[in-house]
Design a protein around this nucleic acid. Sequence first.
DNA 1: TATCAAATGAGAATAATTTTCAATTGGGCT
DNA 2: AGCCCAATTGAAAATTATTCTCATTTGATA
Lengths: 148, 148
Amino acid sequence: MKKDFECTQESYAREVLREKGLKSTAQRLAVVHVLHTSRKSLSVGEIHDRVKDMLGTTGLATIYRTLEMFEGLGIVKRLHFPDGGHGYAFSQGEHVHHMVCVDCRGVFDFPECPVENFDYASVEKQGFRVKNHFIQLFGQCVKCAEAA
Amino acid sequence: MKKDFECTQESYAREVLREKGLKSTAQRLAVVHVLHTSRKSLSVGEIHDRVKDMLGTTGLATIYRTLEMFEGLGIVKRLHFPDGGHGYAFSQGEHVHHMVCVDCRGVFDFPECPVENFDYASVEKQGFRVKNHFIQLFGQCVKCAEAA
DNA sequence: TATCAAATGAGAATAATTTTCAATTGGGCT
DNA sequence: AGCCCAATTGAAAATTATTCTCATTTGATA
Ligand SMILES: [Mn+2]
Ligand SMILES: [Mn+2]
Ligand SMILES: [Zn+2]
Ligand SMILES: [Zn+2]
């Protein structure tokens, strides 16, 4: 495949894929490219459209398959919106949470984990063992706040 | 409607509904009953089935309408699972987060908010204004841990 | 008890996601 | 560079999830 685009994010994805014995297909790398060059989270449909712009024909099922796989690999994060919709954002593996603008769906990293050293003792004593967590902050970005 | 069931949760729901000028229909109260008597979160389909058991015929659209409304009123909380599915759990308005068992989808309240007095300064200085948040803890409940 | 806006049910209509399977292709091996 | 083949893809059908429409019903108020 021709690489009009290539950067640390694509190389990172290639690396993760190779380690797992998975193929670095044009479609997969295009999804990475589309996501990491977007400052807003994208819906499956939006990702599909942009990948088609890059590669010509592309099956929607491939986008779904790729996103599910990437989420498992920690390459993308699925976000949940109040209206019930979902968005996807690039996420380079490290433990990071996101803030999303409820107006433009813009995504902003939130590196400090609020529950990093939170004491689950009170609740684990009831027997529940916490394994991981999902945190998403909602708010307004600068641009949308000004536009309002 | 006949009230074979009635408890603080139902009264609470009636109260909230009345305050908003909304009707306390048999369907709405049945949804409350079904949710608060379940220790696991329920999918829309499961809620529909159980409400039908209670009331006989009930439209699926009504369940969707009720859940959306209840979520807005803070009576129920929508949970998101790794497999992409959603579950609903009773939630009595106060600010509470949940722990869910990834095996049985059991729900457990987590009253202490981990970000209660978290300092968003570092990120708000970039302009983003945090308005609210969503937190969900994943893990295993006692029963499922033993069964494993 | 009459009234009427709010709410419901049934089913059609959309949207979202998954499955199937034949055709294509990335990457390892000459 | 060409071969091989399991992994991957595309297209369309099949499911599943959610919303919409509108005629009918019903809760709350007087
Ligand atoms: Mn965290
Ligand atoms: Mn979700
Ligand atoms: Zn914004
Ligand atoms: Zn469990």
